[in-house]
Design a binder for these strands. Structure first.
Length: 276
DNA sequence: CACGAGACCTGTTCGC
DNA sequence: TGCGAACAGGTCTCGT
C-alpha cells in the first residue's frame, strides 16, 4: 500500500489522533501479541518482550516509507510494505484476521499492525540508523536542492524508473508516485539518469514534490481493500489509467513493464528516449 | 555497477 | 459457473 504520502498520513493520525481515535503519544506499552513471528525483524521475540514492555511513546515520525516510533529507550520502526496498515482503537477490540502484531497500552489504547500479505516488518532497535542508515534524501526536504539532485542523477547510468524506486537514491517514492511524477515531468521511465539536463532534473524534482504534496494533502491514495481514507486515486494522471485519455493531450495511456513493475505512460507526452 | 529473475505472501480480477 | 493465470502500493538476494 503505502508510499510516502500514505505513511505520512498514518504517522500524523497516530501522533495527533482523530475521529474518535486516540493519539499514541504518552501511551505506555503493557503487553503485546505477536500473531505472525516473521513480522518481527529484530530482536527475537523473547528479547522484544523483555525490552518493549513499560516503554512510552515519545514521538512519532516518518522516514522514507518507515514509521518511526521513538520510545523511552528504543526506536520501534515499522515498514508496511505492500499491504500493511496500522489500526488504533480504545478498549478491547477484536483483532482482525490479518493482525500480525498487537500492542496493548496501560491506558486501554490498543494498536494492531494488520498485513494481509505478511511482507511488513517491525524492528525494535537502540540506534535507528542501523535500519534507516542507507536511505537516500527526503524528497520534500527543502535543503535537498535541484543542484544536488542533478549531481546525484549524473552519477548514475540507470533508467529513471528503477532509480527513483531505489530507496537509497531517494526515500519514499513507490510505483504510484514515480509514474505520476514522470508523467508530470514529461519524462519516459527508460530515460537514462545521466542524460538529464540540469533543467530536466529541476523539473523532475519539482514534479516529484508536487505529486507527493498533493498526495499528502488528499491523505494518500486508497485502492481496493488495502487502505481507506485517502482520495488521491481520483487525481491519477497515468497510474492505473491504461486505455484512458491523457489529461494533457488525450492520447490513450499505455501500460508497459519496467523493472518488473507495471508502468503507465502517455506515449505522446513521454516519448521514448533515443537509445535506451 | 546495472539488470533480470525469483522469493516472500494473500487476495482480487481477468480470460477462457 | 468454474478455474487457473495474472496482477497488486515493496524489498531482498542471487546470478550474469
Amino acid at each position: 500500500m503505502p508510499e510516502l504520502p500514505e505513511v505520512e498520513t498514518i504517522a500524523r493520525l497516530l501522533r495527533e489522533g482523530g475521529e474518535g481515535q486516540p493519539s499514541l503519544l504518552g501511551c505506555t506499552i503493557r503487553d503485546f501479541d505477536l500473531l505472525w513471528p516473521g513480522t518481527l525483524a529484530e530482536p527475537a521475540p523473547r528479547q522484544f518482550r523483555h525490552l518493549i514492555i513499560g516503554q512510552e511513546f515519545k514521538a512519532i515520525d516518518r522516514r522514507g516509507k518507515f514509521l518511526v516510533f521513538e520510545l523511552s529507550n528504543h526506536y520501534l520502526l515499522i515498514h508496511l510494505r505492500m499491504s500493511g496498515d496500522i489500526l488504533v482503537g480504545e478498549g478491547e477490540q477484536p483483532l482482525g484476521e490479518y493482525s500480525r502484531l498487537a500492542l496493548y497500552m496501560e491506558n486501554g489504547v490498543q494498536l494492531s499492525f494488520n498485513d494481509a500479505r505478511k511482507f511488513g516488518r517491525a524492528w525494535l532497535v537502540e540506534d535507528s540508523q542501523s535500519v534507516l542508515g542507507k536511505l537516500g534524501p527526503e524528497p520534500l526536504d527543502e535543503s535537498f536542492t535541484a543542484e544536488a539532485f542533478h549531481r546525484r542523477l549524473q552519477a548514475r547510468r540507470r533508467q529513471l524508473k528503477p532509480l527513483l524506486l531505489d530507496q537509497s537514491f531517494l526515500a519514499g517514492l513507490g510505483n504510484i508516485y514515480v509514474d505520476e511524477a514522470l508523467h508530470l515531468a514529461r519524462l519516459h521511465p527508460l530515460t537514462l539518469a545521466n542524460n538529464l539536463s540540469r533543467r530536466q532534473a529541476g523539473n523532475l524534482l519539482a514534479a516529484i514534490r508536487q505529486v507527493l504534496r498533493e498526495g499528502i494533502r488528499r491523505n494518500g491514495s486508497s485502492i481496493d481493500w488495502v487502505y481507506r481514507g485517502g482520495d488521491f486515486q481520483n487525481q491519477f494522471r497515468a497510474y492505473q489509467r491504461t486505455g484512458e485519455p491523457c489529461p494533457e493531450c488525450g492520447t490513450l495511456i499505455e501500460r508497459i513493464v519496467v523493472a518488473q513493475r507495471g508502468t503507465h505512460i502517455c506515449p505522446q507526452c513521454q516519448p521514448s528516449p533515443s537509445f535506451p
